[in-house]
């Protein structure tokens, strides 16, 4: 199953980059540990942390520059917190599904929770002065800034995102 099965959202047209990454690519056997994975974790922040540490170690073995590593770590953190906190509402009977691929030039992942979903276009602008103290929206904003592209499923309980490494600039 491709990481981006829904195109790029409700109104937008699938971008050329997304079309490229939706196409299966040959595995990168030189990467260690395994560059492609699919796992289901319980709604538990420490399980999410373990996964994030594993991805960090894997990315350090690629050409991913330090600033991109920072970006990916931050986006993963926000996406997993959203899945655990807002999606599954800390309900440990629910799971979070994670799929990821680490390629020579990019990182891709999809995180799906068992929540009711939300409309990412409906979030208040976290940078406007009246919303500064509201807790919502800042995480999604950071994910969109730091990743090359972020796409939500129509229901909104699944987020796919990727980052193309900016070699020489990161």
């Amino acid at each position: 199953m491709p990481i981006f099965p829904w195109g790029s959202g409700r109104q937008e047209v699938l971008s050329p980059v997304l079309q490229t990454i939706s196409t299966p690519m040959p595995p990168q056997h030189h990467l260690n540990p395994e560059p492609v994975g699919s796992l289901t974790i319980p709604t538990d922040p420490s399980e999410a942390r373990r996964f994030q540490d594993k991805i960090e170690q894997a990315l350090k073995q690629t050409d991913c520059p330090p600033h991109d590593l920072f970006s990916i770590k931050l986006a993963l953190e926000e996406a997993l917190v959203n899945a655990i906190k807002h999606g599954n509402q800390f309900d440990r009977t629910k799971n979070v599904q994670i799929e990821y691929r680490i390629l020579a030039d990019r990182f891709e992942c999809r995180i799906t929770d068992e929540g009711t979903g939300f409309d990412p276009n409906d979030l208040p602008d976290p940078t406007s002065i009246e919303n500064l103290e509201r807790p919502c929206g800042r995480g999604v904003m950071l994910m969109r800034y730091y990743m090359t592209e972020v796409v939500y499923s129509p229901k909104g309980n699944s987020v796919a995102m990727f980052k193309i490494f900016q070699n020489g600039k990161g």
Binding site: E133, P135, L142
Partner: peptide
């Protein structure tokens, strides 16, 4: 070296 949006929320509340 690292903080998330949840931490920013606490700082905003502290400032308030």
């Amino acid at each position: 070296e690292y903080l998330s949006s949840a931490a920013l929320g606490k700082l905003i509340t502290l400032n308030k």
